[in-house]
């Protein structure tokens, strides 16, 4: 009886997870469309922030708590601030395109159709015997804590098993930071050196 009740509760929780997942995905798609649709870029950036926050909740539903943490801090926080700063410098209105967007629409719809056809061969959502679940992940889950003393498998894989990969990622981030510094820093110095503003600076 007790085991039966627990079984029923687990079934119910799984169903709720699935429905939450679908509802969040619908919201995510709606905000994504809105972010592209809006002509006012400031509104577009704010909608993108909401989109990221919804994505963060979706990651929690899909068990990726570390990813949710990062997405909430990066997507909803830092990206929105950077977008707003850049839009303040480049102008907040998007001009209406003269040509009709039928060709791009056809290209993206055709790509989507091909990809949907490709997903028919993918394993079902959440299946425990999909190929991705059978390769190295069981090893990490079984031996990770004994070999590294870290219960959070994501941290142990990130820093230890795939440490070389993460070193590369950190280098990419560092390079991007230096790139932004060089792009925006040296340009302002060049303008200061030339001293006389050649043309009206609308920024």
């Amino acid at each position: 009886m007790d085991a039966e009740a627990r079984q029923g509760a687990r079934q119910g929780r799984r169903a709720i997870d699935l429905y939450l997942n679908i509802i969040l995905l619908v919201f995510v798609a709606a905000t994504g469309i809105a972010a592209v649709w809006l002509r006012n870029l400031l509104a577009s950036a704010m909608v993108l922030g909401i989109y990221s926050l919804l994505m963060a909740s979706l990651w929690v539903v899909l068990d990726a708590v570390d990813v949710a943490f990062t997405e909430a801090a990066v997507g909803a926080g830092v990206t929105t601030v950077l977008m707003l700063l850049a839009i303040a410098l480049t102008g907040r209105r998007e001009k209406r395109a003269r040509s009709r967007p039928w060709a791009p629409l056809a290209v993206s719809l055709a790509t989507a159709g091909l990809l949907v056809y490709a997903t028919l061969g993918m394993p079902a959502f959440g299946s425990a015997d999909a190929p991705a679940q059978l390769h190295v992940a069981p090893y990490y889950l079984r031996h990770g804590e004994a070999e590294t003393g870290v219960p959070n498998v994501v941290t142990s894989v990130l820093a230890s098993y795939r440490g070389f990969d993460t070193l590369g990622e950190v280098t990419v981030i560092f390079t991007a930071g230096i790139g932004v510094l060089v792009l925006l820093g040296s340009a302002s110095r060049r303008r200061r050196n030339s001293a006389t503003p050649a043309k009206g600076d609308s920024a």
């Binding site: 799984r14 997870d17 068990d63 990726a64 708590v65 959440g126 425990a128 804590e145 219960p151 498998v153």
Partner: peptide
């Protein structure tokens, strides 16, 4: 499905 976050 039915799994939890990978924190052992």
């Amino acid at each position: 499905t039915g799994g939890t976050a990978p924190i052992l």
